[in-house]
Simulated scan of single mutants.
Amino acid sequence: MSQTGATPRRRNPRGQGQVLKTQLLEAAAHLLATMDRPETLTLRQVAREVGVAPASIYSHFPDLGSLIQQVLHLRYEELAARMNDAAGTASSPLEELVARCAAYIHWGVEHPGEYRTLFGGGMPETLVPFDTHGVGEEILASVISVLSDVTTAPGRKPDPHEDWQAGLLLWTGMHGLVALYNAHGAIDWPPLDDLTAKVLGKHASQPAPVVAKILRTLKEPDSGRPVDPHHS
């Protein structure tokens, strides 16, 4: 065994360096999602997970920060695609808001480790600068925009500052729901869609039964109704 502890690995054939890059991203994503303290991740751990020497990583990523940032970018894109796909079936601003937010909540509950990777905090800014979260800002902007469409009275000009605050409060409610639902699975939670309807109803100034009805009729593409892990 080498001093690095890595399992000997056959070199990828010429032109297949992308294979190793993908393996490194998958390994880093897995470790970030499953480690008790993901902020302590090292390149040596990623290399061991894949079965290569740590030096092999530098052909694809100059440092640990760039590897983590790429993982975050891919996870944000995955979440954004889920929300955009769900919103594609909407026929009104309220339906779009419900579809986007329900997709966000269900993705977070179905992928707790990945959700924590994106929104759990703890990563030092030296590894993950603020501008790494660009796609995350786009996700929030999409929710703020459609929330404004739902809540702005006819004939009234939207107020960007108020819209921003309202969107942040809605995101706070959704994040709190996902984080607590994931962290305290032993609690006898009500069905996730019921909780979602109440959170969205409060922030969108809509009766919860109206939101619940939309949740029952909207289906995410190719998956049917989102799965509720605690009430399957």
Rank of each mutant, 00 (worst) to 15 (best):
Leu177Trp: 04
Gly136Ile: 02
His203Trp: 07
Phe130Tyr: 09
Ala141Thr: 06
Phe119Glu: 15
Pro207Tyr: 05
Ala212Lys: 07
Gln165Leu: 13
Lys219Thr: 03
Glu138Phe: 09
Ala212Ser: 10
Gln165Lys: 09
Val143Ile: 15
Trp164Glu: 06
Asp222Ala: 15
Thr132Lys: 04
Met123Cys: 08
Pro124Thr: 02
Val227Phe: 08
Leu218Gly: 05
Trp164Ile: 07
Gly121Arg: 11
Ala141Leu: 00
Ala179His: 13
Ile144Leu: 10
Pro190Lys: 02
Ala204Pro: 05
Ala179Asn: 11
Gly121Ser: 12
Glu138Asn: 13
Gly224Asn: 08
Gly173Gln: 05
Lys219Cys: 03
Val211Lys: 05
His184Trp: 14
Arg225Trp: 01
Asp149Asn: 12
Glu220Asp: 12
Glu138Lys: 14
Gly176Met: 11
Leu195Met: 14
Ala197Thr: 06
Val146Gly: 08
Gly185Glu: 11
Gly167Lys: 12
Asp159Arg: 15
Ile187Val: 14
Gly134Trp: 15
Pro129Asp: 13
Gly121Pro: 13
Ala166Lys: 13
Leu192Gly: 01
Gly120Glu: 07
Trp164Thr: 15
Pro207Cys: 05
Gly122His: 11
Ile144Pro: 06
Ala179Val: 11
Gln206Met: 05
Leu192Asp: 03
Gln165Val: 13
Ser148Met: 01
His203Asn: 14
Lys198Glu: 10
Gly136Ser: 02
Val210Cys: 01
Gly136Phe: 01
Val211Pro: 00
Leu169Trp: 07
Asp193Lys: 08
Gly167Asn: 09
Leu177Lys: 12
Leu170Asp: 04
Asp163Arg: 09
Pro160Trp: 01
Leu195Glu: 12
Lys202Asn: 07
Lys213Ala: 11
Ser142Pro: 09
Leu218Val: 06
Thr126Asn: 08
Val178Gln: 15
Val227Met: 09
Val199Gln: 04
Gly155Leu: 05
Pro190Arg: 05
Val199Arg: 11
Lys219Trp: 03
Leu168Lys: 13
Trp189Ile: 00
Ala183Ile: 04
Ala141Trp: 03
Gly224Ser: 05
Phe119Ser: 12
Gln206Thr: 06
Ala183Phe: 07
Pro221Leu: 03
Pro221Ala: 07
Pro191Lys: 08
Arg216Pro: 02
Val143Asn: 12
Pro226Ile: 03
Thr152Cys: 06
Pro129Val: 00
Ala208Gln: 07
His184Gln: 08
Ala141Phe: 05
Leu218Cys: 01
Val227Trp: 03
Asn182Ser: 10
Pro226Gln: 13
Ala212Met: 09
Pro221Asn: 10
Gly120Tyr: 04
Trp189Leu: 00
Thr126Arg: 15
Thr152Asn: 05
Gly173Ala: 13
